[in-house]
Simulated assay, not measured.
Amino acid sequence: MKFYKLVFFNTLIMGTLISISSSSWLGMWMGLEINLISMIPLLTNKNSYSSEAAIKYFITQALASMIILMIIIMVSLYFSLNILYIKSYLMILNSALLTKMGAAPFHFWFPEVMEGLNWMSSLLMLTWQKIAPMILLMYNSQINNYFMIIIILSMLISGILGFNQISLRKILAYSSINHIGWMLPAILLSWSIWLIYFSIYFLITLNILIFFNYFNIFYIKQLIPIINFNFTLKIFFLSNFLSLGGLPPFLGFLPKWFLINELVKNNFYFLSMLMILLTLLTLFYYIRITLSALMLNFNNKIYFNNIINKLLILINFLNLMSLPMLILSLNAF
């Protein structure tokens, strides 16, 4: 990693920590701005696509930050107004935070930005950049009709728009929007469930992106010949992919089970049922890729050196952590 990228990576982490640990909304806004300014150099590369993605990301995030600052000033100046005005201000503030994390229907920028990034930048976009907006939502929100609409739209839109995608970056982007739909009720109901969910999501995404990054895979047609050369790698990778979709009995199902249990305890029966049904849309295109990889076979041989063999050992070890974990979840209940 280049020295300047290492510096900006540290300030990126610092911006998120400032935002989530601040005791005032102005401090939280400042942390988000430090995070934004640090992210832009990390997105840029030698190709023009990354520059375009960085500009799109900057414009969208700057617009959301401007709305957040405007609402902070208005609430601080007119806090003695009617409570209905305060609720309206908070709804606009929450919309800006949802735009920052890429939740539907404020997701318009997210797949387009992802399409221009390399895999390491994509890892930051899919995981770390979600932390600060979600925790800020937890500080001032609870599940209401507005958030129920956001959760349902995130799952519905991500499922429908992900159907005909051949780009793995866009598939992971729409998958992330679907996971946002699961993480929002988790962060609003139970901090511990959100932490478990996010940690497992981060682990599974890291496993998949290490593989994609090393073999330089960006499209489904590139993926199938690579994983067909090694049966063990194929099984581990496909297990990981299904785990990201939340198919039981893989590890990705565990936090969803916890969250469904918490939703039922809080009498959100209709919401939990809708979330389960709409997640099947996302699971469909995971299974489509998985079945293609299992049923199609290529005879062309691919030769790998010792370094790649060592990498495969690392990938296989990491993927073992995403293999069936149903016993753990049974013990948890």
Rank of each mutant, 00 (worst) to 15 (best):
N216Q: 08
S176T: 14
K256Y: 00
T60I: 15
T232R: 11
F198E: 10
I307K: 15
S192L: 03
S88I: 15
I151H: 03
I131T: 14
S76D: 08
I260W: 02
N297C: 05
A53E: 02
F270N: 12
M134W: 04
I208G: 03
K56F: 01
T205N: 05
M66D: 03
I131C: 11
Q165F: 11
T290W: 08
I59Y: 14
N35P: 00
I210S: 07
G159V: 05
L123T: 01
Y49N: 09
T282R: 00
I151W: 13
K100N: 08
L137I: 14
I302P: 00
N316C: 13
T205M: 06
M321V: 15
E112H: 10
L12E: 00
I152L: 01
L320T: 07
W194V: 03
M125A: 11
L156M: 12
L126K: 09
Y286V: 05
N240P: 06
K100Y: 06
S95P: 10
N35R: 04
I150P: 02
S322V: 06
F237K: 01
L136E: 06
M66K: 02
I59G: 11
S50L: 10
L312A: 01
F198N: 09
G159L: 08
L312T: 00
Y269S: 13
Q222V: 01
M295Y: 13
L77Q: 12
F231D: 03
N261Q: 13
I224W: 03
L84S: 08
M120L: 04
L156G: 06
M28C: 02
S329Y: 08
M155N: 14
S176R: 09
N261S: 11
N266P: 10
F270I: 12
T232D: 15
L271N: 09
I166P: 02
K56S: 10
S167R: 04
L320I: 13
N118D: 13
S22Q: 01
I143T: 14
L77N: 14
F304G: 01
Y174L: 12
L137W: 04
M30Q: 11
F231L: 09
N216G: 08
L280Y: 12
I177R: 02
M325G: 09
L206Q: 04
M321D: 06
T99S: 15
F231S: 12
W194E: 03
S19L: 05
N316V: 00
I327Y: 07
Q142G: 12
M120N: 09
L195M: 12
I204P: 00
S38E: 02
L117E: 13
L247E: 01
K46Y: 11
P255T: 03
P324M: 13
I315Y: 00
I83C: 11
M101L: 14
I315F: 00
I71K: 05
I217V: 10
L259E: 01
